[in-house]
């Protein structure tokens, strides 16, 4: 990162969902062209944070800047215009199941541009080729496996040549080989097309394969932020427990005390 231009800036974001404080003063700067990974345990607020960056959720307090525009104060039309600069790859891939693979990928192009259908068709072929799915244009999403759906979702996310791509658990539920393929795609896109990638994941293999920088979230706060090396050598006990996947440490799921037995005895 020679010239550190900030692509996304999250400033003191707070969010309460229901009666649970999910985000508790998050501050992050994500630079242009880098692959930034947000990791953390289930329920730590990492997906919620991602949804603040895409504008799906509005913070109770704080600001989210995309470039120099504050997503939280933009008008609806301006927000829509900003949204066209980014693509999002959903955990469930979120393909529209009434549309074929081809129509799913071409949807943003058909909706937002005046390109000729023939040109759109070529773009769709290129994007599907990029994710290694040639010849699947006419299938419906229900006929595809999980990994293929994820790749179609990725093709759709990059259909408009976005500046930023968000990934919500891109490798969750995939076999190791497909997961590695997806990781390679993410790397390729950000290295060669200089796309800024923001990846939410708890797949540690993936984190160390793709990340330029990593933020570890815990209980709605940024616990640690740095390069993968920094994270590996972190002194923080929670971070260490998380990357090694140990049951014992500061985060405990299993009651050590006898409260549980007491509960049963009553």
């Amino acid at each position: 990162m020679e010239d550190k231009k900030v692509a996304i800036s999250v400033q003191n974001v707070n969010k309460t969902l229901g009666d649970r404080k999910v985000l508790n003063g998050i501050n992050l700067d994500i630079y242009q062209g880098e692959t930034f990974v947000i990791m953390g345990g289930s329920g730590c607020g990492k997906s919620t944070l991602l949804r603040h960056m895409t504008g799906a959720l509005v913070p109770d307090k704080g600001k989210v800047f995309i470039g120099d525009r504050d997503l939280t104060t933009l008008s609806k039309d301006e927000k829509d215009r900003t949204k066209r600069k980014f693509g999002m790859c959903f955990q469930s891939s979120a393909l529209l199941d009434s549309l074929s693979v081809e129509d799913n990928v071409s949807l943003p192009l058909r909706e937002h541009t005046k390109l000729d259908p023939h040109i759109i068709n070529i773009i769709v072929k290129m994007k599907l080729g990029l994710v290694g799915l040639r010849g699947f244009e006419h299938l419906m999403p229900s006929m595809l496996s999980g990994g293929m759906k994820k790749r179609v979702g990725l093709a759709r996310a990059i259909a408009m040549d976005p500046e930023i791509v968000f990934y919500d658990e891109p490798t969750a539920g995939l076999d190791p080989i497909v997961a590695a393929v997806i990781d390679k795609l993410i790397l390729d896109l950000s290295k060669k097309l200089l796309i800024t990638s923001v990846v939410v994941t708890h797949d540690m293999n993936s984190v160390f394969r793709i990340a330029n920088r990593v933020a570890m979230l815990h209980a709605g706060r940024v616990l640690e932020i740095g390069t993968p090396e920094d994270i590996k050598n972190s002194k923080n006990a929670i971070v260490q427990q998380f990357i090694r996947g140990e049951t014992e440490g500061p985060v405990n799921f299993i009651d050590k005390g006898d409260d549980y037995l007491k509960d049963l005895a009553e």
Binding site: L115, I119, I122, I123
Partner: peptide, 9 residues
Amino acid sequence: SSGLATLIE
């Protein structure tokens, strides 16, 4: 991509 697609066409 739209530029590339135009060239291809």
